[in-house]
Design a protein around this nucleic acid. Structure first.
Lengths: 247, 247
DNA sequence: CCATTTAGTGTATTTTTTACACTACTGGCC
DNA sequence: GGCCAGTAGTGTAAAAAATACACTAAATGG
C-alpha cells in the first residue's frame, strides 16, 4: 500500500544555534557578541553561534559554542525560539535555534583562539540597535530579551547573573535593568527577603565611601525548588526618570 | 584573510513542522492526531506535520499543514520549541519545530483527501499516553500542554477554544481542564467578569433540563488588547476529587 | 567634624484573594 | 399541577498581599 517516496529534496538544509548570552555588571544588562571572522557578514558583530554538527544534539551544540567562543561552561541555557525565514542565510536554507544563556560576567573567559570570532565583547542591551548585526540577530536578541523579562517574574534569575556574594541594592538594580523600570526599595526588600531565598552572610562591603551594605548569597537548595515550581515576582513600579531601550 | 570554507557537509539536513492542535468540547481538552499513511511510523498515530518546503517559511509551513490535514484556516498558532535529537528520524537528520494551535472543534473539517493521513481524530489529552505515538511526538505534546498551562494564566485562550456563544460554566470547565484542577465557581465568575472581557448576550440556553444559563461572547476589542499586553489570571484551586493525566 | 553618599528600616491603607451555602429556574415525570 | 433532579446564579466577611511613603545609620574623604 505505501511506497517509499523520494525525500532527498528535503535533505538540503542546514541548521545552526545562536546564543543570546546575558551578563550583568552592577548596573547594566549586557549581551556578549562576537566579531565574525568568516563569510557571510565577515567583520559584523553577531551572536556567538555556529552550525550544528551532523551527530550533535541541539543543546550540545549550544554548549559547545558557548565553550569555544566564550570559555563558558556549566551555565544556564534554555532554548527560546527557532528562526527560519527562507532568505535569512545567503549560503542556502538555514534555520537557527536561538538559546538564551545567563552568566556571571566574571566567569567569562574570552577565547580568541578560535577561527570564528576575532573579537568578543560585552555590549549594553541598549546599544545593540546601533551595531548593524549579522543575519536576523537583532530580532533574535529582542525576542530573548522579552523572554528574560517574562522569566524574571517567575524564576530567580539573579542566581545566574550575580556574583556569589552581592548586596540587595545590586539585586534590585538587576531587576530594574531587566524590567526597565524603577522599583521601590522597601517593597523590593520586603518581597525578596520573604521568599527565604537569600542567605545573610554576616559580611559587609569593604572600601566603599558610604555606609557599607550587607552581603548575601543565594540558597542553592531553595533555588532548585524554585526552578521546579516557579515563583511569582511582582513589585509595583514607581515613576522612572527615563526609559532606556525600547524607544 | 578570510577564506570560503566548504560548508556542504552541513547542508544535508531537513526540517519539519508539527502541530499540537488543542480543541475543547464542553468537558474535555483534546488534541488532533493523524494516522500516518507513509513511512516511517506508518499506521502510527502522530501529530499533523510535514517537511518544510525549500522556499517556505516555518509559520507558512505550519499553516499549510493545518489546512491540508485538518481543513483549518486562520487559527491561533504559536511556535513552541524545536526538537532535534540526532536519532529522532530514521531517514536522516531532521529537526522539527513544534507549534501549538488552538481551534474550535466545530470548525474542524477533516480532509481525508491527502496522502499523508488516512485518518484524523480528536483524542483526550489524558488518553494520549496509551497510543505509542510516532517519533518523539509524545514529548512534544507534553511540552505544548505545559505551555498551554502557562499561557492560560496570561492570555484569554478561551476565545480561541470555545464556540462563539458560551456559558460561564463552559468557560470554567475549560480552565479546569487546562489547569487540571477545580476552581471555585463564585470566585471564578467574579474574576472573569471583572476583566470586562465578556459580553452578556441577553440570551439563554435552550432545551436543557435544568435552569438555563446565560450566554456570553468575547469582546474582540478587549481580547486584542490582552493579546498585546497580556493579563493575569489566578484563581485559587479548591480540593479536587482526583487528578487526571500526569500520574 | 562636616559633607557626601548609599544602606537600612516600619506602618497604615488599599486591593486582592479566599472561603463558603443557599435560592432560582427549567424540564420531565407522576 | 406538583414534585424531583439538575445546573445557574449570587454576596460577604476575613485574610493576605501590595502599595505609598521619609527618615536615620554608617562609611569615606576632604
Amino acid at each position: 500500500m505505501s511506497s517509499v517516496k523520494n525525500f532527498d529534496t528535503y535533505f538540503k538544509s542546514a541548521f545552526t544555534v545562536d546564543n543570546v548570552i546575558f551578563g550583568f555588571d552592577e548596573s547594566d544588562l549586557k549581551i556578549l557578541l562576537i566579531k565574525r571572522q568568516e563569510e557571510p557578514y565577515e567583520n559584523h558583530w553577531a551572536l556567538p553561534g555556529y552550525f550544528v554538527l551532523p551527530d550533535e544534539d541541539l543543546n550540545t551544540a549550544a554548549r559547545r559554542v558557548l565553550k569555544q567562543l566564550a570559555g563558558l561552561d556549566n551555565v544556564y541555557l534554555e532554548q527560546v525560539k527557532s528562526f527560519g525565514s527562507v532568505d535569512r542565510h545567503p549560503f542556502g536554507r538555514v534555520i537557527t535555534v536561538a538559546y538564551f544563556s545567563l552568566v556571571k560576567i566574571a566567569d567569562f573567559n574570552p577565547r580568541p583562539d578560535n577561527d570564528v570570532a576575532n573579537e568578543v565583547r560585552w555590549f549594553s542591551v541598549a546599544d545593540i540597535s546601533h551595531l548593524d548585526l549579522a543575519f536576523d540577530h537583532e530580532e533574535m536578541i529582542l525576542e530573548c530579551f522579552a523572554k528574560l523579562k517574562r522569566q524574571v517574574r517567575v524564576q530567580p534569575v539573579g542566581f545566574e547573573l550575580l556574583p556569589p556574594r552581592f548586596t540587595l541594592t545590586e539585586l534590585q538594580h538587576l531587576y530594574e535593568a531587566i524590567l526597565e523600570t524603577d522599583l521601590d526599595k522597601r517593597n523590593f526588600r520586603k518581597k525578596i527577603l520573604s521568599m527565604n531565598l537569600l542567605i545573610d552572610l554576616d559580611e559587609i562591603q569593604e572600601g566603599v565611601a558610604h555606609r557599607p551594605a550587607k552581603l548575601y548569597r543565594f540558597d542553592l537548595q531553595k533555588y532548585k525548588e524554585f526552578l521546579q515550581e516557579g515563583f511569582s515576582f511582582e513589585v509595583k513600579e514607581s515613576k522612572r526618570k527615563e526609559k532606556p531601550l525600547s524607544n
